[in-house]
Design a protein around this nucleic acid. Structure first.
Lengths: 238, 238
DNA sequence: CAGTGGTCTAGACCACCGA
DNA sequence: CGGTGGTCTAGACCACTGC
C-alpha cells in the first residue's frame, strides 16, 4: 500500500494529498471520499495528517466536507477556479472534461530586454519567448505569453507546449521543479489583436494574469495571460 | 487577558484570530507577531489552536511566516486581496490604511421580483434594496447592489451602511450571523452609469462579483459588485 | 444511537535561521 | 547553539447527520 515515503523530505500530508488527488482523478472513490477513520487506517498515519491532506484538497475545490455526513467529491462541469489554491488552467479544463491543447504562435530566442529584471538575468542575456493560444475543447480560452531564461528554454521542445503543462516539461527536460511563485489577477479590456485571437466579441472583458514561477531558488518563468471572462470565472465557497 | 470565551460556540481559534486581527490592526505588534510559544502562553491555549488562528491570518494575507525567523506582519500599501481566504473589501481597504466609507444612493423596499428565487423567498415577497458606492480614502472603489429579505432588511439603519460592514450590522440589529456563502468573480466592461459613478476612464475594466451570503440556514443577502480593476487586484503567493 | 467531520490538548522531533 | 515555525502522533470531546 505504501505510496507514502517517510524518509522523503516531502511532508506526509503532501504525499497523501497527491495520492488522493490521483485516486480521485481516476474516479476510484465515486462520489464519496473514504472517511477520515478509513484513511488513517489505510495509510497508517495520524488523523491530523489525514486532515491536513484533505484540507488542501478542500481548499483546491476538489472536496466538500460536511460534519456528520462525510466528504464528497466536488463535481463541476463549468470552467471555474476555486479562489483557494493555485490558478491552473489545465486543471480547470481537464476537470470540466474538455480537451486541453495549445496553438504555439511564436517560439523564439530573443534578447531579455525589459523582462531581464524580473527573471533575474543580466540585461544582455537571452530568453525563450513563447506565445500560445490555449483551447478548452475547440474554443480558444486564453492567450499565454511566457518568457524563460535561455538555459532552461533551450531544453523545451515545441511539442511539449502543445499538450500538457509547461511545468511538467521543465521538470522532464531540465530537471527543474517549480516550487513557488506569485501572481496577480486584474480585469482588463483586451486589445484588438488579442480579441481576435480569442474570438471574443467587442465589449467583453478578460482576466489579465501575471505570474512569476520560481524553481531551484530562481525565477524560471514570467507569464502574462489573458483569459476569456465569458468562459472562465473564479469561485469561492466559504 | 481573557478575550477568549471557552463557553462560546465560536471556535477558540476563530476567537483568537479575531483578537489577533484587531491587535494587528491597532499596530500593537509592530512588524513582528509574537512567537507561537508566546501566544500559547498568553492565551493559554494549545499550540494547535494558535497555529489554526495564525493560519487563517496567513491565508488572508495579513501575516507571513518563515521557519526559523518568526512571523511578520505583511505590509502592503496596495489594495490587493489574497486569493486564499474570503474576499473582503473593507478588510483590504483597512489593511492599506485607507478610510472605508460608503455613499448610500438607494435604500428602499421593493418587490423581490427576479431575486426571489436566489433569496428563497416567495415570489410576491418584498426585499430591501441597497445601492452603495464604496470608497477607499477619497476615491470610489466599488459599486455594491444588495438585496436582503425584508424581515432582515427592515432592521438595518442607513447609518449602518455608511460605515463598517453590513454583516456586522446584521449581527447587531437582527442577531443573524453570516456563516457562509459563495461568490463568483468575472471580469467585465462597466456600463456608462457605473463608469461614471466609479469615476473610471473609458476602456477600463472592473471585477464583477456576485455573492450569496448565508446565515441561520438561509440566504440573507444577494450582492452584485463592480470593483475598479485599476485600484484592486487579487494576489496569490504559493 | 453510532458514525461523521470539527475542535482541542499534550507532547515530540525536525529544518531552518541567526548569533 | 537556542529559538523559530513545520510536521506528526495519540488521544479526547463535541456538534451534527441519519438511522
Amino acid at each position: 500500500m505504501q505510496t507514502l515515503d517517510r524518509a522523503s523530505p516531502v511532508p506526509l500530508w503532501a504525499q497523501l494529498a497527491a495520492d488522493l488527488r490521483e485516486r480521485i482523478g481516476r474516479g476510484e472513490f465515486g462520489e464519496r471520499l473514504p472517511t477520515e477513520a478509513q484513511l488513517l487506517q489505510e495509510y497508517d498515519v495520524s488523523r491530523h495528517t489525514v486532515r491536513e491532506a484533505v484540507r488542501g484538497l478542500k481548499d483546491a475545490g476538489l472536496l466538500r466536507a460536511q460534519r456528520g455526513r462525510g466528504t464528497t467529491i466536488a463535481t463541476s462541469s463549468e470552467l471555474e477556479q476555486s479562489l483557494h489554491g493555485l490558478y491552473s488552467l489545465s486543471r480547470s479544463v481537464q476537470t470540466a472534461g474538455l480537451r486541453d491543447h495549445s496553438d504555439v504562435l511564436v517560439h523564439e530566442r530573443r534578447p531579455a530586454g525589459e523582462v531581464a529584471g524580473v527573471l533575474e538575468v543580466p540585461d544582455d542575456a537571452e530568453v525563450l519567448f513563447i506565445e500560445r493560444i490555449r483551447y478548452a475543447g475547440d474554443e480558444p480560452l486564453a492567450q499565454d505569453r511566457s518568457w524563460l531564461p535561455w538555459d532552461l528554454g533551450r531544453r523545451l521542445r515545441l511539442a511539449d507546449l502543445e499538450h500538457g503543462s509547461l511545468y511538467d516539461a521543465l521538470l522532464q527536460r531540465a530537471g527543474v521543479v517549480v516550487t513557488g511563485g506569485n501572481e496577480r489577477i486584474r480585469p482588463a479590456v483586451p486589445d484588438a489583436p488579442t480579441r481576435a485571437r480569442l474570438a471574443l466579441p467587442r465589449g467583453r472583458a478578460v482576466f489579465d494574469i501575471e505570474r512569476v514561477a520560481v524553481g531551484g531558488g530562481r525565477p524560471v518563468e514570467l507569464r502574462r495571460s489573458q483569459v476569456r471572462g465569458d468562459r472562465y470565472s473564479f469561485v469561492a465557497r466559504w
